[in-house]
Simulated scan of single mutants.
Amino acid sequence: MSTHDTTPAPALHDLGDLVIRASAGLILVPHGAQKLFGAFGGYGLDGTAQFFSTQLGLEPAFLLALLVGVTEFFGGIALAAGLLTRIAALGIVVLMAVAAFHVHLGNGFFWTNGGYEYPLLWGLVALGYVLRGGNRYSLDRKFGLPA
């Protein structure tokens, strides 16, 4: 039996955590830009609201389109930066739960068929940050906010 500790240094854990948190947040940003600004081939707020209303039956469609766009765009940036991490992550969890269970559930599991796999994954990743916060490499920690 070896007496050497083979667990990675805490700094590596924190760096790995930063990679996951930043990636998860930044992947959401273009989705929000589609909804808010019509970027990346998106519909903008009016088009997204129309889609929410006519295709998904979500009302009040404009307000929901705005909330989804803000959560994805600004919440994604906040999650990536580790700023108000738990609050941003909670917004993402709620958004992804609605997406998974209201929008995608009827299509089965696999994302390639429009299923709930993708929003479930990102919702669970965000839930991890609701529970653990931004940790060492976060703006929360830098500014003395609860991390």
Score class of each variant (00 low, 15 high):
residue 16 G to T: 03
residue 16 G to C: 03
residue 17 D to F: 10
residue 19 V to R: 07
residue 19 V to F: 01
residue 20 I to V: 15
residue 20 I to P: 03
residue 21 R to G: 03
residue 21 R to Q: 03
residue 23 S to W: 13
residue 23 S to G: 15
residue 23 S to D: 06
residue 26 L to W: 10
residue 27 I to T: 09
residue 27 I to S: 09
residue 29 V to D: 04
residue 30 P to Q: 05
residue 30 P to F: 00
residue 31 H to W: 05
residue 33 A to R: 01
residue 35 K to M: 05
residue 37 F to K: 08
residue 38 G to N: 08
residue 39 A to S: 11
residue 39 A to Q: 12
residue 40 F to G: 08
residue 40 F to V: 00
residue 41 G to I: 10
residue 41 G to R: 02
residue 42 G to S: 09
residue 42 G to H: 06
residue 42 G to N: 05
residue 44 G to C: 04
residue 44 G to A: 13
residue 46 D to V: 05
residue 47 G to A: 10
residue 47 G to L: 10
residue 48 T to A: 15
residue 48 T to N: 05
residue 49 A to W: 12
residue 50 Q to W: 06
residue 52 F to S: 02
residue 52 F to A: 00
residue 52 F to T: 01
residue 53 S to G: 12
residue 53 S to Y: 07
residue 54 T to R: 04
residue 55 Q to T: 06
residue 55 Q to C: 03
residue 56 L to P: 01
residue 60 P to D: 11
residue 61 A to T: 05
residue 62 F to A: 10
residue 62 F to L: 13
residue 64 L to G: 00
residue 64 L to Q: 00
residue 65 A to K: 02
residue 65 A to V: 02
residue 67 L to M: 12
residue 68 V to C: 01
residue 69 G to N: 01
residue 69 G to R: 00
residue 70 V to S: 00
residue 70 V to D: 00
residue 72 E to A: 07
residue 72 E to Y: 01
residue 73 F to A: 09
residue 77 I to E: 00
residue 78 A to E: 02
residue 78 A to W: 01
residue 79 L to K: 10
residue 81 A to V: 11
residue 81 A to T: 10
residue 82 G to Q: 06
residue 82 G to M: 05
residue 84 L to G: 15
residue 84 L to V: 08
residue 84 L to D: 02
residue 85 T to D: 04
residue 86 R to I: 13
residue 86 R to W: 08
residue 87 I to W: 12
residue 90 L to M: 12
residue 92 I to L: 11
residue 93 V to A: 03
residue 93 V to D: 03
residue 94 V to E: 07
residue 94 V to N: 07
residue 95 L to A: 13
residue 95 L to N: 12
residue 95 L to S: 06
residue 96 M to V: 09
residue 97 A to H: 09
residue 97 A to K: 07
residue 98 V to S: 08
residue 98 V to F: 13
residue 99 A to P: 04
residue 100 A to H: 11
residue 103 V to M: 04
residue 104 H to A: 12
residue 104 H to G: 13
residue 104 H to M: 10
residue 105 L to F: 14
residue 105 L to I: 04
residue 108 G to C: 14
residue 109 F to A: 11
residue 111 W to M: 11
residue 112 T to A: 11
residue 114 G to N: 06
residue 116 Y to C: 14
residue 118 Y to C: 08
residue 119 P to G: 09
residue 120 L to C: 10
residue 120 L to K: 06
residue 126 A to N: 13
residue 127 L to I: 11
residue 129 Y to L: 02
residue 130 V to L: 05
residue 131 L to R: 10
residue 133 G to D: 04
residue 134 G to D: 08
residue 135 N to Q: 15
residue 135 N to S: 15
residue 136 R to A: 12
residue 136 R to K: 13
residue 136 R to S: 07
residue 136 R to I: 15
residue 139 L to V: 12
residue 139 L to T: 13
residue 139 L to H: 09
residue 139 L to F: 15
residue 140 D to M: 14
residue 140 D to R: 13
residue 141 R to M: 12
residue 141 R to I: 14
residue 141 R to P: 01
residue 141 R to Y: 09
residue 142 K to I: 13
